[in-house]
Design a protein around this nucleic acid. Structure first.
Lengths: 337, 337
DNA sequence: TCAGAAATAGTGATCGTTCACTATTTGAAG
DNA sequence: CTTCAAATAGTGAACGATCACTATTTCTGA
């Protein structure tokens, strides 16, 4: 359907006032809060509003109030499915009376940062939630400081909500595998521009150390299936790990493929784990042990900080746990030697 | 990072004018097009703008021009990854000078339609691109018709760009499988609220008819892995198909899993195909025959219609083909009986 | 019944920009 | 030098709401 309906102008507050027989200011009061009006006045405005099918012009309101009630979310492209996070964040913003626009930016951190500053500069949005990495120090270039920026994926020198980057489930996975007898581990990391990738890599190294495990190495990847495939293909025969910790499910799928092609059985010869609980990987043979991520919850919590910074309002954080390990067939005890 | 910078008010056009020693209207002309100004005037305004770090207030501009330059995209949640389509659509909108906000709505068609009308009613956006199904006839309820709506996923009685719903690759797949000796087919459809699911189902039925094939049935699903799994589990032993056409890759993964659990080999005993070219499914054993969808292109083309309807401007359509079949290991010749 | 307070309603300015005019300067031809 | 058109610049209103006041009506209690 492609539709342009009648070209009639939208009615204004004054036309409603005239029809209702009151002043425009009274209609304005009616719009903001229906209190403080006599029932008779209220009824006549009610009638006028519905007769004219009046909706307030939010642009005009924004101009006068200097509040747009709009927030922007900066999305990464191509990396993970932002729909669910977007949804959680949007819902939280709505609760606080904001509308949200999503902006996806291709390119590297610098390009994204540039675009973010541009958006901030127009004064169209009151705040920006960056779900993609932005350059540190970008806040110094914010013009005229009416825009608040909350980054949900942090650079190393910053601290913050960091839930996205919480690698605790990886520790749980490694402890579980160690308990099953695994000793020689291998990690295929994600794109290290992302704090989550850095956190998982750090947690891997730290856990190897803490549990006295052996590491067949860490390969820095890019979240792609190919990076997992190539990493496993390139392992020397004599150094094969029995447990492969992949940065996400797609990387894990690539790794499994490479293991099978090398004649190894999963999980007989090697266990593999992913991250994200990608639906397709639940039906893989073998079904993939992964980390279920409550993306709506992460989106919601990220938005909470922004809303609080702007309006001081504190919303309820996500109720369901944000991440938990789902054990499936791709992990098992080490084969007896 | 959480940042509120200095609270200084943004400079206005009049302050720039004062500093540059010209009238505010001259600055306005400077902003809209730098032509028609004497070089000396232009230079002094240039200087004033950069000294004050002036950026025009787009809210005020919108108010006067009655143009917001904003478009909304209505996204489905939970079904497919909209990031790439969003990106294609956003890019096209930018070329035409519009900004885009993405709105994801949970709930059914009715809820989505309701929200769409609400957005249209505020007068904040000039057009809406609906990538999710909306109720037919919704345009009749558009208030005061300043908003144009283009739906990219159509209801039956409507015609339109329909590229999303183009099922031609499914025909190509079935013809290819028929040439490999397959005769008995099976289709697990997607959520039939989506035109793409309806188109694929219709193409399946039509192709079965046209090529004189046999159909083990069509099961209406919901795009989930479980729907594919359950559909295959429920097939009677004596009616097993040799080719399963799944509505998308996740459904296909579920179907493959069920086939394997029934002791069948893929593709030895049955070929399976998906749709979307989900990266994880490229590494499945067996890697999945699927349809690569140029989502950026689809998003772009959908946005083209909207931009044209609003501004009359015709942008270049997507250059790369929108869909093509990728044959992989999950399809092969029928086993000799 | 009436003063004074409380509740309710109205008036005009204002937000920052562009539009529709009008005014001034410039330049080329006669 | 004039003259007149073209080029350039300025003035004030307007967009549609809300804000800060002021004005009017209604209510309360003596």
């Amino acid at each position: 359907m492609t539709e342009r309906s009648t070209e009639s102008r939208r009615p204004t507050i004054k036309e409603v006032a005239r029809l209702a027989g009151v002043s425009h200011q009274t209609v304005s009061r009616y719009l903001r809060s229906r209190s403080g009006l006599k029932p008779a006045t209220l009824a006549s405005i009610d009638a006028a509003v519905s007769e004219l099918n009046y909706r307030p012009n939010l642009v005009a309101r924004s101009m006068r109030t200097r509040r747009t009630g709009r927030l922007a979310i900066l999305l990464p492209t191509m990396v993970f499915n932002p729909a669910r996070m977007l949804h959680g964040a949007t819902e939280a913003a709505h609760e606080a009376g904001f509308t949200v626009e999503a902006i996806s930016v291709v390119g590297d951190t610098a390009a994204r940062t540039e675009r973010m500053l541009e958006i901030a500069g127009t004064g169209q949005v009151e705040g920006i939630l960056a779900l993609a990495p932005i350059a540190p120090g970008a806040e110094d270039h914010l013009p005229h400081g009416e825009t608040i920026v909350v980054a949900a994926d942090f650079d190393d020198q910053m601290r913050g909500i960091g839930e996205l980057a919480d690698a605790a489930p990886l520790v749980e996975i490694m402890e579980g595998l160690a308990a099953l007898g695994h000793h020689r581990f291998f990690h295929v990391a994600g794109n290290l521009q992302f704090a989550s990738a850095r956190a998982r890599k750090a947690a891997y190294l730290e856990t190897v150390e803490r549990l006295g495990l052996e590491s067949a190495g860490v390969v820095d990847g890019d979240w792609s299936g190919r990076s997992g495939y190539d990493a496993v293909r390139s392992l020397p025969d004599e150094a094969m790990p029995t447990a492969v910790i992949a940065a996400n499910d797609v990387v894990a799928a690539g790794a499994i493929r490479a293991l099978i092609e090398r004649g190894l059985d999963v999980p007989g010869d090697a266990s593999v784990t992913g991250w994200d609980n990608n639906e397709a990987c639940e039906y893989l043979p073998p079904s993939l042990t992964s980390v279920e991520v409550n993306l709506e919850g992460l989106g919601r919590n990220a938005m909470l900080s922004l809303v609080k910074a702007i309006s001081g309002r504190e919303l309820e954080p996500a109720s369901r746990p944000l991440q938990h390990v789902v054990w499936r067939e791709s992990t098992g005890p080490t084969a007896p030697r």
